[in-house]
Design a protein around this nucleic acid. Structure first.
Lengths: 114, 114
DNA sequence: GTCAAAGTTTGACCATGGTCGTACTTCTGT
DNA sequence: ACAGAAGTACGACCATGGTCAAACTTTGAC
Protein backbone atom coordinates (compact mmCIF):
# COMPACT_ATOMS: atom_id res chain seq x y z
CA UNK A 1 0.00 0.00 0.00
CA UNK A 2 1.51 3.39 -0.93
CA UNK A 3 0.09 4.78 2.31
CA UNK A 4 -0.14 8.53 2.66
CA UNK A 5 3.53 9.18 2.39
CA UNK A 6 2.61 11.97 0.09
CA UNK A 7 2.19 14.97 2.35
CA UNK A 8 -0.51 17.58 1.80
CA UNK A 9 0.14 20.44 -0.61
CA UNK A 10 -2.05 23.44 0.15
CA UNK A 11 -3.09 25.90 -2.51
CA UNK A 12 -0.75 28.90 -2.30
CA UNK A 13 -3.78 31.16 -2.56
CA UNK A 14 -5.00 29.90 0.79
CA UNK A 15 -1.76 30.71 2.59
CA UNK A 16 -1.47 33.95 4.52
CA UNK A 17 1.39 36.30 3.73
CA UNK A 18 2.64 35.89 7.26
CA UNK A 19 3.29 32.21 6.75
CA UNK A 20 5.07 32.81 3.46
CA UNK A 21 7.38 35.38 5.01
CA UNK A 22 8.12 33.09 7.92
CA UNK A 23 9.10 30.42 5.43
CA UNK A 24 11.34 32.75 3.43
CA UNK A 25 13.09 34.34 6.37
CA UNK A 26 15.22 31.37 7.28
CA UNK A 27 18.55 31.42 5.38
CA UNK A 28 18.69 27.64 5.00
CA UNK A 29 15.22 27.66 3.49
CA UNK A 30 16.13 30.46 1.10
CA UNK A 31 19.16 28.42 0.11
CA UNK A 32 16.83 25.56 -0.79
CA UNK A 33 14.65 27.86 -2.87
CA UNK A 34 17.67 29.36 -4.59
CA UNK A 35 19.12 26.00 -5.49
CA UNK A 36 15.77 24.83 -6.79
CA UNK A 37 15.33 27.91 -8.94
CA UNK A 38 18.87 27.67 -10.28
CA UNK A 39 18.62 23.98 -11.09
CA UNK A 40 16.61 22.79 -14.07
CA UNK A 41 15.55 19.45 -12.56
CA UNK A 42 14.03 18.44 -9.25
CA UNK A 43 16.36 17.76 -6.32
CA UNK A 44 16.26 15.09 -3.64
CA UNK A 45 16.32 16.23 -0.03
CA UNK A 46 19.76 14.79 0.52
CA UNK A 47 21.22 16.35 -2.59
CA UNK A 48 21.06 19.95 -1.45
CA UNK A 49 24.11 21.91 -0.43
CA UNK A 50 23.25 22.51 3.21
CA UNK A 51 25.24 22.43 6.42
CA UNK A 52 22.57 21.14 8.73
CA UNK A 53 21.52 17.72 9.93
CA UNK A 54 18.90 15.62 8.24
CA UNK A 55 16.28 16.18 10.89
CA UNK A 56 16.69 19.93 10.64
CA UNK A 57 16.48 19.73 6.87
CA UNK A 58 13.27 17.73 7.14
CA UNK A 59 11.85 20.50 9.28
CA UNK A 60 12.75 23.14 6.70
CA UNK A 61 11.28 21.17 3.82
CA UNK A 62 8.04 20.81 5.68
CA UNK A 63 7.83 24.54 6.36
CA UNK A 64 8.44 25.29 2.70
CA UNK A 65 5.89 22.73 1.58
CA UNK A 66 3.23 24.01 3.96
CA UNK A 67 3.89 27.53 2.77
CA UNK A 68 3.08 26.48 -0.80
CA UNK A 69 6.59 27.08 -2.07
CA UNK A 70 7.70 23.57 -2.98
CA UNK A 71 6.17 20.32 -4.12
CA UNK A 72 7.39 17.01 -2.76
CA UNK A 73 6.93 13.49 -4.10
CA UNK A 74 8.65 10.19 -3.69
CA UNK A 75 11.00 8.60 -6.20
CA UNK A 76 11.90 5.31 -4.60
CA UNK A 77 13.38 6.05 -1.22
CA UNK A 78 14.25 9.62 -2.12
CA UNK A 79 11.92 12.51 -1.63
CA UNK A 80 12.15 14.85 -4.56
CA UNK A 81 11.55 18.59 -4.37
CA UNK A 82 10.44 21.06 -6.99
CA UNK A 83 9.59 24.72 -6.90
CA UNK A 84 5.90 25.58 -7.31
CA UNK A 85 6.84 28.58 -9.38
CA UNK A 86 3.71 29.32 -11.37
CA UNK A 87 1.19 28.53 -8.66
CA UNK A 88 3.06 30.55 -6.10
CA UNK A 89 3.61 33.48 -8.43
CA UNK A 90 -0.09 33.48 -9.14
CA UNK A 91 -0.84 33.84 -5.43
CA UNK A 92 2.02 36.20 -4.57
CA UNK A 93 3.02 37.96 -7.76
CA UNK A 94 6.53 39.34 -7.78
CA UNK A 95 7.44 38.18 -4.31
CA UNK A 96 9.62 35.22 -5.15
CA UNK A 97 11.30 37.08 -7.95
CA UNK A 98 12.15 40.01 -5.68
CA UNK A 99 13.53 37.77 -2.96
CA UNK A 100 15.55 35.66 -5.37
CA UNK A 101 16.92 38.72 -7.10
CA UNK A 102 18.09 40.24 -3.82
CA UNK A 103 19.47 36.92 -2.71
CA UNK A 104 21.48 36.43 -5.86
CA UNK A 105 22.66 39.99 -5.86
CA UNK A 106 24.25 39.47 -2.45
CA UNK A 107 25.91 36.15 -3.09
CA UNK A 108 26.11 36.18 -6.83
CA UNK A 109 28.12 38.71 -8.78
CA UNK A 110 31.62 37.64 -7.82
CA UNK A 111 34.20 39.92 -9.33
CA UNK A 112 31.78 42.51 -10.61
CA UNK A 113 32.95 46.07 -10.95
CA UNK A 114 30.81 48.89 -9.68
CA UNK B 1 22.13 72.61 20.02
CA UNK B 2 19.75 70.30 18.13
CA UNK B 3 21.73 67.39 19.52
CA UNK B 4 21.76 64.14 17.59
CA UNK B 5 18.13 63.38 18.05
CA UNK B 6 18.11 62.57 14.40
CA UNK B 7 18.87 58.87 14.24
CA UNK B 8 21.07 57.36 11.53
CA UNK B 9 19.54 56.40 8.20
CA UNK B 10 21.56 53.74 6.42
CA UNK B 11 21.58 53.40 2.66
CA UNK B 12 19.13 50.64 1.72
CA UNK B 13 21.72 49.26 -0.65
CA UNK B 14 23.96 48.41 2.30
CA UNK B 15 21.31 46.41 4.09
CA UNK B 16 21.27 42.64 3.75
CA UNK B 17 18.09 40.94 2.59
CA UNK B 18 17.94 39.08 5.87
CA UNK B 19 17.52 42.31 7.81
CA UNK B 20 14.84 43.56 5.46
CA UNK B 21 12.82 40.37 5.78
CA UNK B 22 13.14 40.44 9.55
CA UNK B 23 11.76 43.97 9.47
CA UNK B 24 8.85 43.05 7.23
CA UNK B 25 7.85 39.88 9.03
CA UNK B 26 6.35 41.54 12.07
CA UNK B 27 2.64 42.31 11.52
CA UNK B 28 2.76 45.57 13.47
CA UNK B 29 5.63 46.75 11.33
CA UNK B 30 3.84 45.80 8.15
CA UNK B 31 0.84 47.74 9.43
CA UNK B 32 3.08 50.79 9.76
CA UNK B 33 4.37 50.35 6.22
CA UNK B 34 0.87 49.86 4.90
CA UNK B 35 -0.48 52.96 6.57
CA UNK B 36 2.47 54.98 5.32
CA UNK B 37 1.99 53.80 1.76
CA UNK B 38 -1.75 54.44 1.88
CA UNK B 39 -1.41 57.91 3.35
CA UNK B 40 -0.21 60.79 1.20
CA UNK B 41 1.55 62.70 4.01
CA UNK B 42 4.01 61.73 6.69
CA UNK B 43 2.68 60.36 9.96
CA UNK B 44 3.78 60.95 13.54
CA UNK B 45 4.64 57.91 15.63
CA UNK B 46 1.64 58.42 17.85
CA UNK B 47 -0.78 58.84 14.98
CA UNK B 48 -0.64 55.29 13.71
CA UNK B 49 -3.44 52.84 14.20
CA UNK B 50 -1.64 50.33 16.40
CA UNK B 51 -2.64 48.33 19.44
CA UNK B 52 0.70 48.27 21.21
CA UNK B 53 2.35 50.40 23.84
CA UNK B 54 4.56 53.34 23.03
CA UNK B 55 7.76 51.57 23.97
CA UNK B 56 6.96 48.65 21.71
CA UNK B 57 6.12 51.05 18.91
CA UNK B 58 9.44 52.80 19.39
CA UNK B 59 11.15 49.45 18.99
CA UNK B 60 9.32 48.74 15.74
CA UNK B 61 10.08 52.16 14.28
CA UNK B 62 13.74 51.66 15.00
CA UNK B 63 13.78 48.28 13.28
CA UNK B 64 12.10 49.76 10.22
CA UNK B 65 14.45 52.72 10.13
CA UNK B 66 17.56 50.56 10.45
CA UNK B 67 16.25 48.34 7.67
CA UNK B 68 16.12 51.34 5.35
CA UNK B 69 12.35 51.28 5.03
CA UNK B 70 11.36 54.54 6.69
CA UNK B 71 12.81 57.97 7.29
CA UNK B 72 12.33 59.74 10.60
CA UNK B 73 12.69 63.38 11.53
CA UNK B 74 11.46 65.67 14.23
CA UNK B 75 8.66 68.17 13.92
CA UNK B 76 8.53 69.78 17.29
CA UNK B 77 8.03 67.09 19.87
CA UNK B 78 6.62 64.67 17.34
CA UNK B 79 8.71 62.25 15.38
CA UNK B 80 7.48 62.06 11.84
CA UNK B 81 7.74 59.01 9.62
CA UNK B 82 7.85 58.64 5.87
CA UNK B 83 8.34 55.72 3.57
CA UNK B 84 11.68 55.61 1.71
CA UNK B 85 9.90 54.31 -1.35
CA UNK B 86 12.27 55.17 -4.17
CA UNK B 87 15.51 54.46 -2.36
CA UNK B 88 14.26 51.16 -1.06
CA UNK B 89 12.80 50.11 -4.40
CA UNK B 90 16.13 50.87 -5.98
CA UNK B 91 17.85 48.49 -3.58
CA UNK B 92 15.16 45.80 -3.49
CA UNK B 93 13.14 46.15 -6.67
CA UNK B 94 9.65 44.73 -6.49
CA UNK B 95 9.87 43.54 -2.92
CA UNK B 96 7.83 46.22 -1.21
CA UNK B 97 5.26 46.20 -3.96
CA UNK B 98 4.82 42.45 -3.71
CA UNK B 99 4.47 42.54 0.06
CA UNK B 100 2.06 45.45 0.02
CA UNK B 101 -0.01 43.86 -2.69
CA UNK B 102 -0.35 40.61 -0.75
CA UNK B 103 -1.05 42.51 2.42
CA UNK B 104 -3.81 44.56 0.88
CA UNK B 105 -5.28 41.57 -0.86
CA UNK B 106 -5.78 39.87 2.49
CA UNK B 107 -7.27 42.75 4.41
CA UNK B 108 -8.44 44.95 1.62
CA UNK B 109 -11.14 43.94 -0.82
CA UNK B 110 -14.14 44.07 1.45
CA UNK B 111 -17.26 42.98 -0.32
CA UNK B 112 -15.55 41.80 -3.47
CA UNK B 113 -17.11 39.00 -5.44
CA UNK B 114 -15.00 36.14 -6.69
C1' DG C 1 9.94 78.27 35.11
C1' DT C 2 6.72 74.70 35.10
C1' DC C 3 3.93 71.25 33.18
C1' DA C 4 2.23 68.24 29.99
C1' DA C 5 2.94 65.81 25.60
C1' DA C 6 5.66 62.69 22.83
C1' DG C 7 9.12 59.36 22.56
C1' DT C 8 13.16 56.84 24.24
C1' DT C 9 15.74 53.66 27.16
C1' DT C 10 16.42 50.04 30.11
C1' DG C 11 15.45 45.75 32.19
C1' DA C 12 12.78 41.78 32.70
C1' DC C 13 9.61 38.24 31.08
C1' DC C 14 8.16 34.82 27.93
C1' DA C 15 6.72 32.48 23.60
C1' DT C 16 8.44 31.02 19.34
C1' DG C 17 11.32 28.52 16.42
C1' DG C 18 15.89 26.52 14.81
C1' DT C 19 18.87 22.91 16.19
C1' DC C 20 20.37 18.32 17.23
C1' DG C 21 20.34 13.32 18.82
C1' DT C 22 17.91 9.28 18.88
C1' DA C 23 14.64 6.11 17.53
C1' DC C 24 11.56 4.76 13.99
C1' DT C 25 9.62 3.85 9.16
C1' DT C 26 9.82 2.68 4.33
C1' DC C 27 11.77 1.36 0.36
C1' DT C 28 15.60 -0.92 -2.67
C1' DG C 29 19.11 -4.40 -3.73
C1' DT C 30 21.01 -8.55 -3.14
C1' DA D 1 14.75 -12.09 4.41
C1' DC D 2 18.18 -8.72 5.66
C1' DA D 3 20.96 -4.76 5.54
C1' DG D 4 21.55 -0.25 4.26
C1' DA D 5 19.94 4.13 2.48
C1' DA D 6 16.80 8.10 2.84
C1' DG D 7 13.84 10.57 5.55
C1' DT D 8 10.55 11.34 9.38
C1' DA D 9 8.97 11.99 14.23
C1' DC D 10 9.67 13.16 18.79
C1' DG D 11 11.80 15.56 22.69
C1' DA D 12 14.84 18.57 24.58
C1' DC D 13 17.72 22.62 24.58
C1' DC D 14 18.54 27.36 23.77
C1' DA D 15 18.91 31.93 21.46
C1' DT D 16 16.20 35.42 19.55
C1' DG D 17 12.85 38.86 19.61
C1' DG D 18 8.24 40.98 20.84
C1' DT D 19 6.15 42.77 24.86
C1' DC D 20 5.36 45.77 28.77
C1' DA D 21 6.24 48.82 32.92
C1' DA D 22 8.79 52.31 34.83
C1' DA D 23 11.99 55.99 34.72
C1' DC D 24 14.03 59.41 31.90
C1' DT D 25 14.64 63.23 28.14
C1' DT D 26 13.32 66.74 25.23
C1' DT D 27 10.35 70.02 23.37
C1' DG D 28 6.44 73.34 23.16
C1' DA D 29 2.93 76.11 25.57
C1' DC D 30 1.26 78.99 29.04
Amino acid sequence: MPADRIPPHPDPRDIPLQQVLEALIEPARRAIIEQLSAHPADIACGAFDLTITKSTATHHFRVLREAGLIRQYYAGTSRMNSLRREEFDDAFPGLLEAVLRASLREAGPRGMRS
